[in-house]
Amino acid sequence: MPEINSRILGGGLVPVVVLGASLLGGCGGAGETITRLTVGSAGPDPYTLMSNTDRQRIERSPARGGTKDGSTPGLYGGTRQAASCDPAKLIAFLRANPAKAKAWAKVHRIGAGDIPGFVGRLTPVLLRTDTLVTNHGFKAGKPTRLPAVLQAGIGVLVNEYGVPVVKCNCGNPLTQPDKKISTGKAKYKGSSWPGFDKRGVTKIQVKATVRSFVLVDPDATMGFERPVATTGGADGPPQALPEELSPSPDPSDSGSADPSAPPTDSGTPGIPTDGPGTQPPVTPQPSGGGEVPPTPEGEQVPENTPTGQVGPT
């Protein structure tokens, strides 16, 4: 309830309403709740389910946290001459589901008929940092939205600015996070993962258009270029990694963090803490490439919908 005080103005008592801090929503994003989505989890309200789009084991970028330009070399990863996300399958699925296509297109402010051209300009990559996005789902015939942090290793499609616009294992459209959200002050829910640290959550911003993304292979042994709107076949030759792109020890992983630093909100790995769609990924079966199928949750894919393995394993 608001606190009511009385002040003397001109010889009379005038009630003054003083709003408590809890009612001043949006103060630095402190009141926001961010849902953690793990590798292999489709998350809440998926549009569809697609397998083998994520990577369980990936060397994370040494430069993480804060705000990064989508064009930053080494921000994203991938397997050279192979893509774990197939844009053509997403186009076919949306074409077969007009209601979902209409809602999907609305998120990106395009018409349903523009989906093939829009998706055709996207590029499949793997996240190398835990990344903050706005995740848009579909439930009971209506679109949903929530702030989410995607674990490094999740496959996404990025636009020509390097901004994630599709979560590959569920087809959900993604948009940039609300600028008011503070990753350090917000609350987190959902299963955590080893090495999660709210200080390491990265926001992606638009800087300039990209002709080729400089990607890093999952084990961080080499770099290579992937032209925009290609799915691996046009990847450039292997390149040695510059020192700034080479993996470095992570204090949050080794337990050697500075004891004077703020406490890490790491959660309890593998234990769901709240809400559907935030369960840990299922234990991957040997597939030859380390990719992980999505957790079978939420909406099932309609019969005859193109799904299954997306890209080479």
Rank of each mutant, 00 (worst) to 15 (best):
R145L: 01
R145I: 02
R145H: 01
P147V: 10
A148E: 08
A148D: 09
A148Y: 02
A148I: 12
A148P: 10
A148N: 10
A148R: 06
V149E: 02
V149Y: 01
V149N: 04
V149Q: 04
L150V: 15
L150T: 15
L150A: 14
Q151V: 15
Q151A: 15
A152I: 13
A152R: 06
A152G: 11
I154E: 14
I154C: 15
I154A: 13
I154Y: 04
I154D: 10
I154P: 11
I154W: 04
G155A: 14
G155S: 15
V156C: 10
L157C: 08
L157W: 01
L157I: 10
V158W: 02
N159F: 07
E160V: 15
E160L: 14
E160F: 10
E160P: 11
Y161T: 13
Y161R: 10
G162P: 07
G162A: 13
V163H: 04
V163P: 08
V163E: 07
P164H: 08
P164Q: 09
P164D: 09
V165W: 01
V165A: 06
V165S: 07
V166T: 06
K167M: 08
C168N: 03
N169F: 07
C170K: 09
N172K: 05
N172R: 07
N172F: 02
N172E: 05
P173A: 13
P173I: 13
P173L: 11
P173G: 14
L174W: 00
L174H: 02
L174C: 08
L174A: 09
L174K: 05
L174Q: 05
T175D: 01
T175N: 02
P177S: 08
P177H: 03
P177A: 09
P177N: 07
D178N: 02
K179H: 09
K179P: 11
K180W: 01
K180Y: 04
I181Q: 02
I181G: 03
I181T: 12
I181D: 02
I181H: 01
S182I: 00
S182Y: 00
T183D: 03
T183A: 07
T183M: 04
T183L: 04
T183W: 00
G184Y: 00
G184V: 00
